[in-house]
Write a protein that binds this DNA or RNA. Sequence first.
DNA 1: ATAGGGTTAG
Length: 486
Amino acid sequence: MLRMRPKPTDVDFNRLLTAVVKMKQYSVALNLFDEMHQLGTPVSEYTLTIVINCYCLLNRVHFGFAILGSFFKRGYEPNVTTFTTLIKGLFLDDKVIDAEKLFKKLLALRLCEPNEVTILTVINGLCKAGHTLTAYDLLGLFEKTTWKPNVKSYNTVIDSLCKDRMVDEALQLLAKMIDKGISPNIVTYNSVVQGLCNFGRWKDAKDLITRMVDHKVSLDVITFNILVDAFCKEGMVKEAEDVVEIMMQRNMSPNVVTYTTLIDGYSLVGQIDKARKLLDSMPGRFADGLKLFKDMQAEQVIPNLVTYNTLLHGLCMNKQIAEAFSFLHIMEEKGVNPNITTYNTLIHGLCKDGKVEIARDVFNSLPCKGLQPDVQLYNIIIGSLCQEGLVEEAKCLLVEMDKSRCAPNSWTYNVCIHGVLRRKLLVEAKTLLDEMYRQGFSPDATSASMLLDHLQDVGRRTANVGVHWPDFRSCVSSAKNFKNRI
DNA sequence: ATAGGGTTAG
């Protein structure tokens, strides 16, 4: 472009920068800008806004504000696009208060007229920062002004309300937006359907789906997957299968989420053979994934961390652990730093392959790499240690979790119980169960069923010799209660 | 189609 005659315009250079940003190569875009700038290419306010956006997306909003100086130096006025970008940058950098301040300043000093992108940026920023109710109030405020929130802003708040367990408020907001003449779309409905299912409100979910149909909003793959998941979580695999059937009748293909969900469902109700079959029908696709990866490299598209993690996942699921390790080294050589997800995947693969010792070594090496294990990772390694009978070590990790900023969750206790019961360590399971209750959690379906089975087995055997485990009766009855509840 | 925005499922 630099050698072309006539010279490309600022518009052409901006198109180039935009394309690089779309590929998420923000640092590359910034380097390119520096280089262009030094070579005297034209710079417009569009260019500068692209640069600010790059800094924001790299969590360097501070540098973004520094670019504002260039605006004034060149006699450009920052406009609504520039300010909206900066507000987004502040939210991305967790500077919620500053973001709110800047927004208020825009209004108070009339620096620019906010538009629907600005509104969405503020609403979304607040929701993502966990300030759902502030966002909700602000939405109500905007409704009374000339700045009208669009369907995306409503969707964001409705989804956040559902996630924060305020499903009735979400339903009210849904009614309100319809009342205001803003048509909910499939995303709006999916959020609320999911919210209702999460709280077992099947009747309401069903009514809502009827309303969707009435409003001519057609169900999509995500809607069906939400329903498949809801049935699976209830152990109603047959009904989940029916949903998939209906989905296919409508010429919609189940996707990878549908499969995973179903595999979980089958495992939950103990139909391991079906889960296995479904799972076996999938890994063949890894070869396709690898092929795509090679094509990608041939096309000079730079694979990112997510690409590597995805392929690593494929290798681990296929128990190709050695290949997974060499893959890890390849990504390091390419300068792609593995993150905690990379190691979670690898350690999960090692554990599944019965290589707990190696998994533990990798796990212990994480702090030197500057990586802090998350709850998920603790759960993987603790569950696996329990299953291998290394209960003491697992307990040490439980204590370690409590001390670090990584509190055990319900799943932590469940994996421990699953693990120790597989080794028939009933007393250990009982201790864990008590601790679990103390922490305000309850056992999941698998823990409860396994406990019941083991207790009944002990009951049969001890009855013969006239020995009774002290808490036997209460344990059996509580285990039965879980089972009934399920 | 020169710059800024978003949401739902595993």
